[in-house]
Design a protein around this nucleic acid. Structure first.
Length: 512
RNA sequence: GGCCCGUUCGUCUAGGGGUCUAGGACAUCUCCCUUUCACGGAGGAAACACGGGUUCGAUUCCCGUACGGGCUACCA
């Protein structure tokens, strides 16, 4: 079974909306595995359900992968020797019909003419009869309208007259189907549990079951990596490979554990949106039909590296204590052997932690560049040196660059109000005397650096006036906590500090 | 309901029969650093779902039960 061939993986989403983080992780694992083995990562768009097509979804998917640093070697947006990579376009070329007909010809598939009403009636009948698994299968099909029960003439007549029909897989009644999943090992299912899946719909479109198999083989996919929700239908897929005579070309399957909702039950779904208090999408998304907006990690201020790092560690681990991985390190370390079998709830708190880690990894130059956008929007102009030093002082308190302003706006604006709690408690005759003296000493300073500032404070204190640091902080910044006091004062500079204290001394209430 | 998959601290996980008094990370708590906040440092609390086997010995292997998840469409 395809050992030793070039590793080629694919991510094959259907464009029914934005990609959620579970989808991103599936893409990531496909990508990591392909790159680890020097292979190719393809993007195929599975748009065979015309009723669920959402405009903009495909562009969203591509942009999201791009933001994450997951590069597409081949496929939609990248092109390649197996184009087209959109299934609707492949259908137009008659690719799927050909193989569906081959299956019918070989007796492995058949025409079925049952109407939706008839199918529904059948299910109700079976349910009423307490049949354990009501589905279109080897027994049920004998009483339905299909090319196995109808005469050849009747079938030909119906097709000729344009009766709608589907093509279904002819699943054997009782046969053990086994396949080896890379993550789960041998999985065994009796064909009695597998229904006669629709392969070709009445609109001529293939279903996922048929289309992905044909495309995987035609596109020379070596490993099909997908979510665990596909595990139950995998036996049907094995059958299709067999009936098409493609057991040699069949990719190895790897079914990934699902991403679960952090708040309790069920797999994470697109519908979770922002309801849980954190994004489930990589990028912002506005639904073109409902106008409903969903937030994304990018717009929330997460670094793609942090997002990817977090995702990689959900269901996979390196077997060491390392937690911070660049994409290259992930590629180096990745293997399916270390992918766990059970679903993972993800933790928004840890995601924040990852971002904090990356925030600290970025150079001051990079941070200053990012924060400069905020300053520009506020028409504030400061030297690069000032902004970089600011970032250095403020970043240890933040998880995101977009918190910098709230955390340290006082570096750029002279305060207009003063923390009332501190003032109430500490603003009195003695403290104001000390502040006045300090102001005078600062005003006469001829040099301005940390040790100088400390010395000046010491001078005032030796004179008998206790300098309350918290009060001083409030006079300068207006708030009771923030960056290291003396370092902050140094950065602000003598003029600014003196001005601020002066203003505060005037603005503060008369002393009782 | 049926079928399939799974089950180690609250969460992500390490662990493939003795080294487990079960390790790491996030979160949480305490202390130190800092007359602030945070960072950092030190420490604490916190888990092998249950019952049977197999074995000299099971967190590790097998079976059952419970629980969780997935699937059960002319959706993917």
């Amino acid at each position: 079974m395809n050992t030793g061939r070039r590793v080629r993986t694919r991510f094959a989403p259907s464009p029914t909306g934005p990609l959620h983080m579970g989808g991103v992780r599936t893409a990531l694992f496909n990508y990591l595995f392909a790159k680890k083995h020097g292979g190719d990562f393809l993007l195929r768009i599975e748009d065979t359900d015309q009723t669920r097509y959402v405009p903009g979804a495909e562009e969203y998917i591509i942009e999201a992968l791009n933001w994450c640093g997951i590069h597409i070697d081949e496929g939609v947006s990248a092109g390649g020797p197996h184009a087209p990579y959109r299934q609707s376009e492949r259908k137009a070329e008659g690719i799927y019909l050909k193989y569906a007909m081959q299956l019918v010809h070989d007796g492995h598939a058949y025409y079925a003419f049952d109407t939706p009403e008839e199918l529904e009636a059948m299910r109700q009948r079976l349910t009423a009869a307490k049949v354990v698994a009501p589905q279109y299968n080897a027994i049920v099909r004998q009483s339905m309208k299909n090319s196995l029960t109808l005469s050849e003439d009747e079938v030909a007549k119906r097709i000729a007259s344009g009766d709608p029909y589907v093509i279904r897989l002819n699943v054997p009644r009782n046969e053990e189907i086994r396949f080896e999943d890379i993550i789960r090992g041998w999985v065994s299912v009796n064909s009695a549990q597998v229904d006669d899946k629709v392969l070709l719909k009445s609109d001529g479109m293939p279903t996922y079951h048929l289309a992905h198999i044909i495309d995987d083989v035609l596109m020379e996919i070596s490993h099909a990596v997908r979510g665990e929700e596909w595990l139950p239908s995998a036996p049907a897929h094995i059958l299709i490979y067999r009936y098409l005579g493609w057991e040699e070309q069949m990719p190895r399957y790897a079914h990934l554990p699902l991403l679960l909702r952090p708040d309790g039950n069920g797999k994470l779904s697109k519908r979770d949106g922002d309801r849980l208090g954190f994004p489930v999408f990589p990028l912002n998304w506005t639904d073109p039909n409902t106008g409903e907006q969903s937030s994304g990690y990018r717009e929330k201020g997460y670094y793609p590296e942090a997002f990817v790092n977090m995702l990689a560690l959900l269901g996979w681990n390196p077997g060491t204590n390392q937690e911070l991985f660049s994409m290259d390190e992930l590629i180096q370390a990745f293997s399916f052997e270390r992918v766990s079998k059970s679903g993972a709830k993800f933790d928004p708190e840890k995601t924040r932690w990852f971002n904090q880690q990356y925030l600290r990894k970025h150079s001051l130059h990079e941070l200053a560049l990012e924060f400069d956008k905020v300053l520009k929007s506020k028409n504030i102009n400061r030297s690069q040196q000032f902004v970089e030093r600011f970032c250095e002082l403020i970043r240890e308190k933040a998880h995101f660059v977009n918190e910098f302003w709230e955390l340290g706006s006082y570096f750029f604006e002279i305060p207009g109000t003063y923390d009332s709690k501190v003032i109430e408690k500490k603003w009195n005759l003695t403290s104001s005397a000390a502040m006045n003296k300090l102001h005078a000493v600062f005003n006469q300073a001829d040099s301005w650096d940390m040790s100088g500032i400390n010395q000046m404070i010491a001078v005032v204190e030796t004179g008998g006036d206790k300098v309350d640091k918290q009060l001083l902080r409030v006079l300068i910044t207006g708030v009771s906590s923030g960056a290291s006091l003396v370092e902050m004062m140094e950065l602000l500079g003598k003029e600014d500090v003196v001005t601020r204290i002066e203003k505060a001394l005037k603005a503060l209430p008369e002393i009782k």
